[in-house]
Design a binder for these strands. Structure first.
Length: 827
RNA sequence: GCGAGAGUGGCGGAAUUGGUAGACGCGCUGGUCUUAGGAACCAGUAUCUUACGGUGUGUGGGUUCGAGUCCCUCCUCUCGCACCA
């Protein structure tokens, strides 16, 4: 027995130190080498890493190491999504400064990540809160402003009077502030917007080209963008010069319109109701609706309500007078904020019409049915043929859509129209810990961008974050007081900061040249490294982050910094880490601390288990006993190597041409394992099955060399198997393998050793178990040589005793032979 | 409600193109060694049956020589969107 045991702590420290001091994983652009850019979503420096990070970064590291062994020049960077609200909350709670808190967290977490043995090029590390980073973001902002892709707009926001701050929707709980519990009020506020809608069409169309993305994510993006085609039609308003413009996807139903609904905050309402008895009523209604929407639980549907504005619109096709209602289910943000209501063919309109006793008129008849206006119990929203629609009667709905739209177009009261659900991206945040928006307000010249040479507008650090949560920038004269770049007069800086999603929208590109000082991106570096070949992160970012990053890529392209259209060629969305069937959370008390595990078992074991327990895209159920199993396996491999050190340390030579059975079995298994591990990683990143294959090889190794083995196996075959195990396992448990690689006499790093090829001849089975079925049921088995003749197989199976029993005296109808697998006798 | 995905032992999970269901691991049972072992190793472990054999991949049907896999019905769960005109 060899007394040496697996001292993971010493091994891991040794290799981590080596990798760090030697900068083993530092890379440079080299056009002679094929590149591979592997990126995991960078973390918010919240304080400590959690199991989700462990899983995400382990998966990424395996791929990075695998690609490196395949000879790629691998860019694998790490950094920090360092701006954000938690830093401000922590600053209040601990009476510290957001910057101090953030940078301390970064230091701590960097240590944790290094303790996992992740193969990053740490020279490319970046933190988005540093002016060297966000200055380029400010430059983008100005350039986009000049192109008209950034604009200011007044919108309604959630305002907490006590905290003097704007709240995001998710910070409003039951209509109250999450921090102080006071009620939240709507308030009009000026904010800056990125014109992402300008790119809606391209963002949608490119979804079809993202072959390396999960269909689920693409579906979510498509839905989010929400393109719908239809028509925009102007309705005259009785007694007014203004027109009421609506958007509809069902122009074919226009002859069935019996009223109009508009959003409670539609700009025409005050004009329509001015001086009438309805004026107060609609105002009240608008206010009540707004409050109700804020308070309502998003799960339950709001009852449809409305109030008559007192005015009528004229249907341009029929001349009918249609009462205009303000309705709570019509959204000002979508379309034109006004719709024609066709109760017979729209469920919402149907419910509304029933409630307020408005007529219902069927104009679409589905095939083989007859709908009656007075007897239908719900709207019919499907296709059909038009009735009671003047000259359009008889057309089917599809034909009618274009015919009716064309009519509107030629008579100048409407046109074909495409509407998107996607809205422009509001990026103003009334917060301190973010990138300052580089704009200046001047009473004489209006709003002016900060001149390029004055960038960056740095975030002042001589501030205290107040309990209220109010941004100190608003009152910090030394920050906001400035001169107007145009007239030189007194100016006031914008004191809002940018949404932190802006930083994470382009960090992937900056990694290619993190120290570049001439501009945001170095053209050569970007040309070599981009796009990201494989991006890995949680599915919770399927919409916002990924959509913004795609948008930013197109913006940077159109500003001339890039030539790619899409940032991430392949996307892997890994599942959550759960325990006891639910997400880990402090309140449930089921949180597993990676530090504790690493201390107890070592990083390699933790990595191994998180890869083994489930395929990456699925949720991973954490199991402490399972971790022990992973640890046991590594010990098993370690012990074999230690016990056979004299064999393994010998000068390497190739396997002998003639082998005994045990040797051939091991040799075959070795090559089958190489084949399987390679294809499992390449195919779907199914590390769990790759690991199980390596476990099988290890079991075989013990079996053929153990006490029960009948014949001794050649040293070369054992060496070959052990080398295969170490090589195949090395992307997953790098310290462990590197150490044993060195111990067995190798002088070069395993990390850069070429990934092994398998020998197809060696992997081929020479004897197979043929299954004999009678009427589809397994009745016998035969050991035969691979590639045996069909006729011989048939004869052999029919001769089988057990098979004979089942055939008896029945007629043999058919015999099906599946090569090297089975034979089915049908009687 | 709409959209997407998933239902396999006690558990996590395996099963090219339809071709031996349950690989690998956890747990459990028995054993070996040991002062002891919650260490290590060996054997077993879907289920019913004494056995022969039967039954089994959420439900019910279908296609097929053969279905976890393909088609239809229903059920359950997860995720996303949710008055988007």
């Amino acid at each position: 027995m060899n007394p040496e045991t697996y001292d993971f702590a010493a091994i891991e420290k040794k290799w981590q130190d080596t990798w760090r001091t030697e900068k083993t994983f530092k890379v440079n652009a080299d056009t002679n080498l094929k590149k591979y850019y592997l990126l995991e979503m960078f973390p918010y420096p919240s304080g400590r890493i959690h199991m989700g990070h462990v899983r995400n970064y382990t998966i990424g590291d395996v791929v990075a190491r695998f690609k490196r062994m395949q000879g790629y020049n691998v860019l694998h960077p790490m950094g920090w999504d360092a701006f954000g609200l938690p830093a401000e909350n922590a600053a209040i709670k601990n009476n510290t400064h957001p910057a101090k808190w953030t940078y301390e967290n970064i230091d701590y977490m960097r240590n944790q990540l290094q303790g996992m043995g992740l193969s990053y090029d740490w020279d490319r590390e970046l933190a988005t809160c540093s002016p060297e980073y966000y200055r380029w973001e400010q430059l983008f902002f100005i350039k986009l402003y000049e192109k008209g892709l950034v604009y200011p707009k007044v919108t309604t926001v959630n305002w907490c009077e006590t905290c003097q701050t704007v709240l995001a929707n998710e910070q409003v709980i039951d209509g109250c502030c999450w921090r102080c519990d006071d009620s939240v009020l709507p308030r009009e506020m000026n904010g800056w917007f990125f014109k992402i809608t300008e790119y809606a069409e391209e963002l949608l169309a490119e979804c079809d080209n993202l072959k390396g993305w999960p269909e689920k994510v693409l579906t979510m993006q498509r839905n989010w963008i929400g393109k719908s085609t239809g028509a925009q039609i102007d309705f005259d308003i009785e007694g007014h010069d203004e027109k009421l413009t609506i958007f509809t996807t069902r122009p074919d139903t226009i002859f069935g319109a019996t009223f109009m609904s508009v959003a409670p905050d539609h700009p025409l309402i005050p004009i329509l109701t001015q001086g009438t008895a309805q004026e107060e009523k609609t105002k009240e209604f608008a206010h009540a609706t707004l409050l109700e929407k804020q308070r309502q639980n998003p799960d339950d549907e709001l009852e449809k309500k409305g109030v008559f504005t007192g005015s009528y619109a004229i249907n341009p096709y029929t001349g009918d007078k249609l009462p205009i209602y303000a309705a709570n289910f019509v959204l000002m943000e979508y379309g034109t904020g006004a719709v024609m209501a066709v109760p017979a063919h729209d469920q919402r309109d149907f419910e509304f019409a029933k409630k307020y006793s408005i007529p219902i008129k069927v104009v679409i008849q589905p095939l083989g049915e007859k709908l009656e206006s007075d007897s239908i119990t719900e709207a019919y929203e499907g296709p059909g043929n038009l009735i009671d629609s003047d000259t359009f009667s008889g057309l089917d709905s599809e034909q009618a859509k274009s015919a009716i739209t064309e009519y509107a177009d030629s008579h100048k009261f409407g046109k074909k129209q495409t509407t998107f659900r996607l809205r422009d991206w509001g990026i103003s945040r009334q917060r301190y810990w973010g990138a300052p928006i580089p704009m200046i307000y001047c009473d004489a010249c209006g709003v002016q961008p900060v001149p390029e040479q004055d960038l960056p507008v740095t975030l002042p650090d001589n501030v205290t974050i107040e309990q209220s949560g109010k941004s100190p920038l608003h009152d910090l004269e030394s920050f906001y007081k400035t001169t107007c770049p145009k007239c030189g007069g007194e100016g006031r800086r914008e004191t809002d900061t940018m949404d932190t999603f802006v930083e994470s929208s382009w960090y992937y590109a900056r990694y290619s040249c993190p120290d570049f000082t001439e501009g945001p991106l170095d053209k050569d570096a970007v040309a070599y490294w981009l796009p990201v070949d494989q991006y890995i992160g949680g599915v919770e970012h399927a919409i916002l982050h990924l959509l913004y990053a795609r948008f930013f890529t197109k913006i940077m392209r159109d500003l001339g910094y890039l030539t790619i259209d899409e940032p991430f060629a392949n996307l892997l969305t890994q599942g959550m880490v759960i325990k006891d069937g639910t997400k880990m959370s402090k309140s449930k008390g089921n949180v597993v601390d990676p530090d504790v595990l690493i201390k107890k078992y070592g990083a390699d074991t933790v990595r191994l288990f998180s890869l083994f327990a489930a395929p990456p895209e699925r949720d991973l159920e954490w199991n402490d006993k399972g971790v022990e199993g992973a640890f046991r396996f590594l010990n098993r491999v370690f012990r074999f190597v230690a016990e056979n050190m004299d064999i393994l340390k010998q000068e390497k030579s190739s396997v002998p041409a003639e082998m005994n059975n045990a040797g051939r079995d091991l040799h075959r298994k070795t090559h089958q394992t190489i084949r399987k591990v390679g294809s499992d990683i390449k195919g779907n990143f199914h590390f769990n099955t790759a690991i199980s294959a390596i476990m099988e090889l290890t079991n075989t190794l013990y079996n053929v060399t153990g006490e029960n083995s009948k014949e001794p196996v050649d040293d070369e075959v054992i060496s070959e198997a052990v080398e295969a195990i170490l090589t195949l396992l090395s992307p997953m448990v790098p310290h462990f393998c590197e150490e044993l690689w060195q111990k067995t006499g190798h002088t070069s790093l395993l990390s850069f050793t070429p990934w092994p090829d398998f020998d197809p001849d060696a992997a081929k089975e020479d004897e197979i178990t043929l299954v004999i079925q009678v009427n589809g049921k397994v009745r016998g088995r035969l050991q035969v040589e691979a590639g045996c003749e069909e006729e011989t197989l048939k004869e052999m199976s029919l001769a089988d005793e057990k098979v004979q029993k089942y055939i008896g005296d029945k007629d043999i109808r058919k015999i099906i032979v599946v090569k090297n697998k089975l034979i089915n006798i049908v009687v």
